[in-house]
Each structure stands twice: as C-alpha cells, then as structure tokens.
Design a protein around this nucleic acid. Sequence first.
DNA 1: GGAAAACCTGACCGTTTAGTCAAAAACGGA
DNA 2: TCCGTTTTTGACTAAACGGTCAGGTTTTCC
Lengths: 239, 239
Amino acid sequence: MTESEVMVATGQDAAEPGLTAPASGQRRIRRENVERILKAAELVFAEAGCAGATMTEIADRAGLPKANLHYYFRTKEDLYRAVLDNVLRMWLAPVRSIQPEADPATALAEYVVAKMRLSRTRPNASKVFANEVLHGGGQIQDFLARDLRQLLDQKAEVLDGWIAKGLMAPVDSRHFFFMIWAVTQHYADFDLQIRMVLGRKKLSRQEYERITAEVVRMVLRAAGLNAAADLMDLAGRTG
Amino acid sequence: MTESEVMVATGQDAAEPGLTAPASGQRRIRRENVERILKAAELVFAEAGCAGATMTEIADRAGLPKANLHYYFRTKEDLYRAVLDNVLRMWLAPVRSIQPEADPATALAEYVVAKMRLSRTRPNASKVFANEVLHGGGQIQDFLARDLRQLLDQKAEVLDGWIAKGLMAPVDSRHFFFMIWAVTQHYADFDLQIRMVLGRKKLSRQEYERITAEVVRMVLRAAGLNAAADLMDLAGRTG
DNA sequence: GGAAAACCTGACCGTTTAGTCAAAAACGGA
DNA sequence: TCCGTTTTTGACTAAACGGTCAGGTTTTCC
C-alpha cells in the first residue's frame, strides 16, 4: 500500500466499476452511501477491532441492510482497507509545520497542537490506526516501511539541522518524534483510561485545550526549549 | 475487578475447584499446563486481540488439544480474564520507585527504566493491556477507576510535593505520568511501526538500552531536571 | 495393588458470521 | 414516457467458532 494508493474508496473498485462512468462525478446515491458506510465502519472498527467488527453491526449503524454493504464493498477486508486508507491519509497531514526555516518552538508547538486536535476530533481514526499497528497485519507494513519512513527521514533531518545550529537540545530526532506521536495519540487511544483515572465522564473542549498546552510545554522542555515553555507557562496561567 | 481480585489464575475457578484441594500447592500437571496455556494465550491475544483470537490457535500454540483448554478454563472469556489479571498485576509493579523522600531525577529515571524494560521483555503483556483499553470492555473499567486511579492519586501527590519544594518544574503531575506511560508503552505496543520506520528487523538489547537512556533524558528534561539530563548526556556519550 | 481423583480428547452440536443471489424497485438520460 | 443502468433486499449457504460430553487414560495416595 504505497502513498499513491492511499485514497478514499470511491466504490469503483467494487461491484464492477461502471465502464460507462460519467465524468461528472460519481452517482449521488453511491457517494452518499459510501460515505455513510465508511463513517459507521470507522466507528465499529475502532470500538471492536478488525476481527471483532461484524458487517451486521456496521450495517445497522449505517442504517442499511447488510447485503447493501456488500454491494458497495465486496468483502469486509475491502471495507476495512478503505477505512484504513482514509485514516493513513489523515495521519500524514499535520507534520507540515516542521520546516527547516521555521522557528523550532513555534513549529513543534503547532505540530503538537495539530496532533492533539486530531486526537480530540477523530479519536476513532487514531484507534483504527493503533489497532492495526498493534496487531501488525500485512495491511500497514508497506505504509510504515515506505511512506512513513520517508516522511520521518525528512523531518528528522529538519530537527537535526536545528540541533546543529544550536536551536534545540541534542535529542535523537527520530525518538523525539516517537515521543510526540506516543503522547498525543495516547489521548485518543487510551481515552478510556484517562477518563476513568481522572474520574471524568467526558473531557470538555476547554479541558482538552488546557491539556494540550500542558503537553506542548512538556514537549518543548524535552527539546530543551525551556524559555519558550516558560513563556507558555505564563500565558497559560494568566490567560 | 479490584486489586485484591487481580491474581494468577490458579485454575481453581475452573472445572469444579477441588473441594479436597491439598494445602501442599496445586497438582504438578495442572500448574504446568495452566502456565503453558496462559503463555500461549497471552501471545495469541496480543497478536489477534480478544475477539480475533481463537481457542484452536491458542491450543495449537500450547501444544494441547482444544478440549483440554476448556478443561482448565471453562470459557474463552475466563482464559482472557486470567491473562489480563496477570498483565494488570505486572502493570502496577514498577511504580514503587516514586517515593516522597527519593531524589526526583533518580526516582523518575528508575521508573522509566523499569517501564522500558517491561516493554522489552514483555511486549505481549503491554499489547494485551493496550488492546483492552482501546476497545474498552467492561473488563478493565473497575481496574482503571479504582486501583489505577488510587495509585495515580498517590504518586501524583508525591510529584506535587517535589514541585512544591522546587525540586522539579511545575508540571501537571497526572499528565506527566500519562506522558511516561505513553512513551514507554509505545515501544511495546507500536514496536512494528518503530522497527519498520527505522528499517530494523529487530532491536538489539544494546539498542534498546541506548533508546532507554534517550527516553530518560527527554523525560527528565520535560520535568525541568536539565542538570540531571545533561549529566546523563555526558555519561551516555562517553561511556 | 487398588480405588478414587485428576486429567485427557475425538467427535459432536448450536450459533454466528461473511458472503451470495436473484428478483424487484428506483433512477436518469433520451 | 421509455429503457438500460444502478440500487435494494430478504432469503439462503458454507465455514468457522465456542463449547459440550462421554468414555478412556494417567496419576496419586493409602
């Protein structure tokens, strides 16, 4: 599964691609139903895992009969791949802020904020990703070994550049990224644990923003950017 | 599932507990087979998740016929609970080093080292735990809301004490623990991603120790303990 | 050595699940 | 309105799975 193959399932790979498919976008009904199915599937796959999810459950959540799912997606695995492809595409996006000419503290803070926002707004996507890596099927290995590796190499080089210029502490740039991924995704993947342990039913948006600021401070300090972290401290506590 | 109920499955809760059970420990055969089954089960549950694991697969890995599993563990859920109980017990152990009178840098470093060692030596245990939290069944909620919450409250208080004395930066102690958990367990739960992205087939013990040192440095810096982290820098790079 | 307890296991059963299919209904351009 | 195309769906099948059980074998203890 290379990056170029990561795409929204248009459904054209199921049920005999319309050879006479009109250029004017897909049929309305197909587009709407595919979207509904993918949304329901992401939820169910996140809740139950790939093996634990059933087509019947997904169909019920989408408000469609099961046979209809098999009309748009030939097999359960096809549907799972489509969901996963969406998730992977989303995963790669927030890293853009890491650029050589950027200010390290600003860029890292922006990156963490973007990752935390993704954890809040799309926890199910993160869970599907986590589940897939956890039970390392062949599904995701190409993505990890090709696309993600290439991306990490690029961005690690940016950090190494900053370090060489003395702009941040001499961390191992790759493992520094692992730390950011681990911490930010933790708030989506382990949200049950976090809520139970904090005794909260749900984390409000305000609470989430406070947590995000805290995570940013810790990450900045881990990078040796204490001045920036302390500035945040001031802003966060007085604002 | 309270902490007191967290225990190794002795098998006495399956197949009619021997009412005439001898005080001199369990029967040898039972003890050995239960251990083999639990070991195989932990592996399979980690690889496939709870729903994806099959009794047949576990039986094959344990080298026993499937019916034999049901002799020691009445149902798949009973077996899963037994595995999970082992995992949870292990999870709570390493936190001991966090004590009020300890030196923050030393205690935190020891804690991170212990958690990283657990990730290296028992990755499957970590994966079973992660999978359970991810798909939050009722199984683990009591543990999280009671035992883990209580433990976190205790240890957060220790950190707050250190902070009050000015021994470390004013972090949110609970979220600081979340960061440690996230980062250390990441190396077990996401080891596939880490190996793929680094282009390694397997991480050697030496590599793991280098990574552990790096993680310790980042955690210490995140806690504002830069002096200790820099000392480690020196030791790690010259030693 | 003998009896009771513990252990073993092939064959079997009911349920759940992914996937199929054919016939009907809805759609949409001419 | 008409006709080919797309969409819908209840009923069905085969396979996989968790769990059962009866009858046999081994172990343990006196």
